[in-house]
Design a protein around this nucleic acid. Sequence first.
DNA 1: CTTACGTGAGTTTTT
DNA 2: CTCACGTAAG
Length: 736
Amino acid sequence: MNSSLLAGLNPQQLEAITLSEQSVLVLAGAGSGKTRVLTTRIAYLIQTGKVSPYSILAVTFTNKAAKEILVRINAMLPINTRGMWIGTFHGLCNRLLRTHYQEAGLPQAFQIIDIADQLAMIRRILKALSVDDKRFPPRQVQWFINNAKEAGRRAANVVADDPYTRHLLEFYSAYERQCDREGVVDFAELLLRSYEMLSRNEALREHYRERFDHILVDEFQDTNRLQYDWLKLLAGAGADRHPTAVFVVGDDDQSIYAFRGADTGNMKSFEHDFGVTKVIKLEQNYRSHGNILAAANAVIARNTDRLGKHLWTADDQGELLRVYRGLNDFDEASFIVDEIRALQSEGIPLAQMALLYRSNAQSRVLEHSLFNAALPYRVYGGTRFFERMEIKHALAYLRLIAHPDDDNALLRIINFPARGIGARSLEQLQDAARQQSSSLWEAAIQKCGGDSHAAAGSNAKGLTGFVGLIQSMRQDWESLPLPRIVEHVLVQSGLISHYKNERDGADRLENLHELVNAATIFVHEADDDSLVAFLTHASLEAGEHQAGSGQDALQLMTVHAAKGLEFHTVFLSGLEEGLFPHDNSLNDVNGLEEERRLMYVAMTRARRRLYLTLAQSRMLHGQTRYNIPSRFLDEVPEKFLKWLSPIVGIKTNDNFVVADSDNDFRYSRAVQRNSSSQFSGNTAQWRIGQVIRHAKFGEGVIVAYEGAGNDARVQIKFNDVGIKWLMLEYAKLTPA
DNA sequence: CTTACGTGAGTTTTT
DNA sequence: CTCACGTAAG
């Protein structure tokens, strides 16, 4: 047994990792080493030799998390992780369905559609049924369908009491039929389909139950009903109990996806459904300083619906939380800019600072100020690589090659780039397809075949050309390796020349070339380098939000997007009633508690410094709004706050402090200052009085320091730029 | 088929 | 306000 595997773990972590074969709930607070525990347990199970890597199933929500687990296991054990069942719910379900496509009633090359494709399809169906889309907005229909699926219900299993629901159900069944006909599945379908397959097929179910001795689940608080039932089925919990040990890690306080069907009730159900006798709490936080943690604890303590957990840290109290209330949103933004500049001059990298907001719309003003201040920043969220229009077009060609029944794909590209197939020829095509209940592609082929005597209009010519194009592409597919096919399709389809001629097509062209790169990388990395596998990869992994230039940049994102991340400094902006908590959650207790969890998540992202900012007025929807401070601000005990602005309309009206950049740090310094003159950073020993050199500020002498290790700060009297406090971790000092 | 205009919505979103 | 989408006109 490699003892280094378990080195440096606290007793609770150790217990969770080495627990014998039983199901367990691990309540893991923010920054408590959750991922480390999960991965170390996997490594431990394998290394102690009791468990084969192939009888472990580990499931996450994001590809990123799954990758992280694989990387860490690879670092801990000399085993090949290929072939291990570690992935997202959707990825693993896809694997099941691909392996047993016949049992699942799917074509071998079934395609996965994303929400945009799904919406387009629903639009099409509603149109075909002549539905008034004012009464039944496509988005609402989509929401209804996905909700039903995520609760494990088919159209046939939903009870409709009212006419409205009956209509929705009709659309749901029509949608189901259409998906079946096209041989496509949406995200929820991956889960529902594999769930149904396993519950229907006893032999298959038993096979997988036997196979997996251990199931591990990350972010368990985010599971929805269907995912829970899926786990239960696979683990054989309930009546016919199977000795599968199910190890789930989660934090009910960080459940922020209830609006999407996540159900923390699953954590409670888990205990009794899986015969859990042991709940392990990981409550030691290794991330944040004490004040930040205490403030976050105070906020989350207001929630009534909790399993109960209290984070603590062995670290110092650290600084107070800094609060700034600006006159307006612009003022708030310039405050943030000033503070970022100051931190930057202290040597803290921009990438270690995050600017968080409740909703995306808030980023506009902030970005404006950052841009004017010439501060590099990166916004997370927005369109991801495989969701870009030009990429979806290219993928649609590829999909049609691999899977001709995909009407969605056909409709996307039949006239893009334009080849003279207008609305009326499309309508004819759709009519023909509907009549013989075939796919559009089949209808197109027939139309071309019997075309010689028909009116030789330009549209017929266009259609023939299109059919010929796809058919020739399909032939190339037989003989070319994946990246070449992609390249070929880009050229033959006319996409390349189309974007070459377009005014602002340069970025799109670049993205298309990037797609060839993606295919090349995929071929090198994947076990299965087929076109279908690549398309699946594109559907299940939307790709990075942005190509990430690698440049040091401030991180801008919503609080949701920040979950799981940590930063030296966090700016939490827009702390106003109506924004955070959001208007739409104000009247609902559950909604408010979710907003509060969101606040908790936001606060616990900060390692060392946390700013809470707000504005007295701001522009929203073209109107100036005067918001009162967020209730969450009131929920932080005053003793943890340091006001940096005069404040109005809040109970602690008189004890504000005006920012004073020189003396700003004095209060925290008093607590932590050390008396010895020798101290050490990460790599080197330093002493007071020593002459040093700094890359930017030049030569200077160390006059004081505080803290230790990573958190040590040094005060240096520079020859040229005066006295400065710098973070030792980032300052890159060299002895002069 | 492209362009212009009108309309309406405007939390969060791992797959 | 401002973006995205859908329809109508050119």
